[in-house]
Computed example of a mutant assay.
Amino acid sequence: MRLSHGCLLLGLAGLALGACAPGVPANWARGGATLDVPRARWIVGNASVEVFPDGRILINDEHELTVDRGGRVYDPSHEAVGLLEPDGRLVGPGDKPLGNVGVLHASRAEEANAWISVLPTGEVVRYGDNSERLTLGVWIGCNQSYASHQTCTLISHLLAPKIISAQQSMRYLPGYGMYPGGYMPGMGLPYR
């Protein structure tokens, strides 16, 4: 009898902990903004972000996220990352605000100004603390429609912090090693 009470208490504790975890955004089942998912590539530093029409997003050939035509973004284990609402608000699990994403610009939660833009040319620009413009690579394949461009802006908004952090800490992203002087194979060193 004692064992069954222990199992019951353990089961109740597990349910209580699970109930505290934030769930998917409120409109997850319905979906949010209508997006086009293009075949696109973002080249930034030593990283390559690939987007496939089935929604898979890879950083240097490793599956990072998936986006669907209903504005839902989730990780490889199918856990919700965020939902882009039709009005441009990006909400995470438990309806946590993650910012605003338009066709060209994205702002962080609780900020009025854009922190990152994907220009019509595909150039990704992030804005520093003093409003200086800093280049953060270029997208190829995003200019098929407004909805596909917004998809690339959404992906940039979500992945740029990880990419910037990896560059600033001199860590490398999956698939690339560190080489002397920052050079990597294929960089085109002059032949003498």
Rank of each mutant, 00 (worst) to 15 (best):
M1S: 08
M1R: 02
M1Q: 02
R2K: 12
L3R: 10
C7T: 06
C7R: 12
L9F: 13
L9C: 10
L10G: 08
G11V: 15
G11S: 15
G11L: 15
L17S: 10
A19D: 08
A21S: 13
G23K: 11
V24D: 13
A26R: 15
N27Y: 12
A29S: 12
G32P: 09
L35K: 00
W42T: 10
I43H: 12
I43F: 07
G45V: 09
V49L: 12
P53W: 10
R56D: 04
L58S: 02
I59S: 00
N60Q: 07
N60V: 11
D61F: 06
D61C: 03
E62F: 04
E64T: 05
E64F: 01
T66I: 06
V67P: 00
R69W: 02
D75R: 05
S77E: 13
V81D: 08
G88M: 04
G94S: 05
G94N: 08
D95V: 07
K96Q: 14
L98P: 01
G99M: 03
N100F: 06
V101T: 08
L104W: 05
S107C: 05
A114T: 04
A114W: 00
I116Q: 02
P120R: 05
G122D: 07
E123C: 01
Y127Q: 04
G128F: 04
N130A: 14
S131D: 10
S131F: 09
T135V: 09
L136E: 13
G137P: 11
V138A: 12
I140V: 05
N143G: 06
N143D: 14
Q144R: 14
S145F: 00
A147H: 05
A147M: 05
H149V: 00
H149T: 11
T151D: 03
T151C: 13
C152Y: 12
C152W: 08
T153A: 07
I155A: 01
L159E: 04
I163C: 03
I164V: 13
Q167A: 15
R171P: 00
L173C: 09
G175Y: 06
Y179G: 13
G186F: 10
M187A: 07
M187K: 06
R192T: 02
